[in-house]
Structure formats: C-alpha cells, structure tokens
C-alpha cells in the first residue's frame, strides 16, 4: 500500500497531504488526552502501536504469486478508537519513508489517508457493526482487523487510479487494474491478520480485563474467575 516516493503528481501529493493533516493532528491530541486521562492505558497503547509496527514490516506471500504486508492498525482502532491510529500509523509510515525508502515524504499524506485513517475507520466501523448485530467480541475483532487491512489496500488502489486513469478505460479501468495488483493479493493476508487480531484479543481478555472494561471493549462483570470470553 506504500505509494513510492515521487509517484504521485505534485497536485495529488499536496491534496492528500492537506486531507491527512487534520486527521493526524486530531489523532495526536487524542493520544495526548488518552495518556493524560487514563495513564493506566499507556501499556495497551504501546501494544497497539507495536502491533502495527511489527505487521507492517513483514511481507508475506499470497495466492497471486506476489507478496504484501498486513497493516496491523485494527486492534488500536478497536481499543482506542480510530483517531489514535491516525497518529500511530503515520509515525510508522514516517519511519519507513525516512529510513527504509519505503513510501515517501511526498506520498506520506496519501499513504496516511489509506493506512492511518481509512483503514482504522473501516475496521472500527466493521467491529461496531458486528458487535451491534449481537456477535461476541472475537468475531467482531476478526471482522474489524481483517477489513482495516483490506480497506487500506482498496484505498491505495483508488488513489493511484485517480492519479493515473487508464488511457482508454479511464478511472474505472485504472481502479480495476490497481485492485488487481493489490486487493486479491491482500485477501488471504487480511484473513491471516484478522486471526492474529483474535489471538491478541484472546490474550488481552485473559490478562487485561480491567483495562478492556475501562475502555468499554468488555462490559463490566461481577468478579468472575478468569476466562469466559466468547
């Protein structure tokens, strides 16, 4: 999902940067507020950031014979709401743009919109929807984490199609072309990431129940001995 350095025309680069900036600033304030008002959640905030740091570094093979990396932005969005991930995700992208020549500064805005804004919001929305339908925590986490991943790659495809419409088939043709590069490859990886999210939340429900209750992810229950998650 990293649009490489210099690979968006200047007008698009500026436009996406302007679009991303308010989300990232709002995210920075959300992180500061979270740490100030609930210092006990700093540990989980670290875990959410670490999850996206690991997963976005690892490229995995997929069914299409090409490889791609997960995003890891879902769990943080579910735990702390999406604005927090707008900052954490952009920090990851900045690290990769500056040190790894992966992504870039001119494309940071576009990549942040896909990775740190749209992905987390879609994941959070899917999580809320599945929970709202009456499902338990873990199925909702699976849906949220997997769709945060997939939505990021769909967004990147749309961004590239907008910048490089096909000469004969236009925007729609370009969308199909870039989705062909990104989306199908990403499906099994998104499923794998969803399962990793389930593993993470199983560990958290067993070991961090008080924090999850305070964050509103789990309902407060009268002291039940450990376990009992869906």
């Amino acid at each position: 999902m990293h649009i490489a350095e210099g690979f968006l025309p200047p007008a698009h680069a500026v436009g996406w940067t302007v679009a991303a900036a308010p989300f990232v600033l709002h995210g920075a304030r959300a992180v500061v507020r979270e740490v100030r008002e609930r210092p006990e959640s700093t540990l989980l905030l670290g875990a959410a950031g670490a999850f996206t740091f690991v997963l976005s570094a690892i490229k995995l093979p997929s069914v299409t014979g090409s490889s791609s990396h997960p995003t890891g932005t879902g769990p943080g969005a579910i735990l702390f709401r999406p604005p927090v991930m707008a900052l954490l995700g952009t920090v990851v992208l900045l690290f990769q743009a500056l040190l790894l020549a992966h992504g870039g500064l001119t494309t940071l805005g576009a990549n942040a919109v896909a990775f740190a804004v749209v992905g987390p919001w879609v994941g959070y929305g899917a999580y809320r929807l599945v929970r709202g339908l009456g499902a338990g925590l873990l199925p909702a986490v699976f849906a949220g984490v997997a769709l945060a991943d997939l939505a990021t790659y769909v967004t990147t495809s749309l961004q590239l199609a907008l910048a490089f419409p096909d000469a004969s088939t236009g925007f729609a043709g370009a969308v199909a072309k870039f989705l062909g590069v990104f989306a199908i490859t990403q499906v099994p990886l998104a499923l794998a990431e969803g399962l990793l999210g389930v593993l993470l939340f199983r560990a958290l429900t067993a070991n961090a129940r008080p924090e999850l209750e305070r964050l509103g992810v789990l309902r407060r229950e009268p002291a039940v001995p450990a376990g009992g998650a869906a």
Partner: peptide, 27 residues
C-alpha cells in the same frame, strides 16, 4: 501459487512507469 512473490508496491510502480511516468522526487 506460482510467481516470484515480488512486492505489490513494486508491481504498482512498474505499472505506472510503463505508462511513461517518471517520479519527480527521490527518497
């Protein structure tokens, strides 16, 4: 699957360069 498992990011930049685009900024 068969393929060389190249990165999708690289595949996208190749597709764009194939249409004659040259990046205007380097890392």
């Amino acid at each position: 699957a068969s393929g060389d498992f190249g990165g999708t990011d690289g595949a996208a930049t190749e597709a764009i360069e194939a249409e004659g685009y040259t990046p205007w900024f380097d890392s």
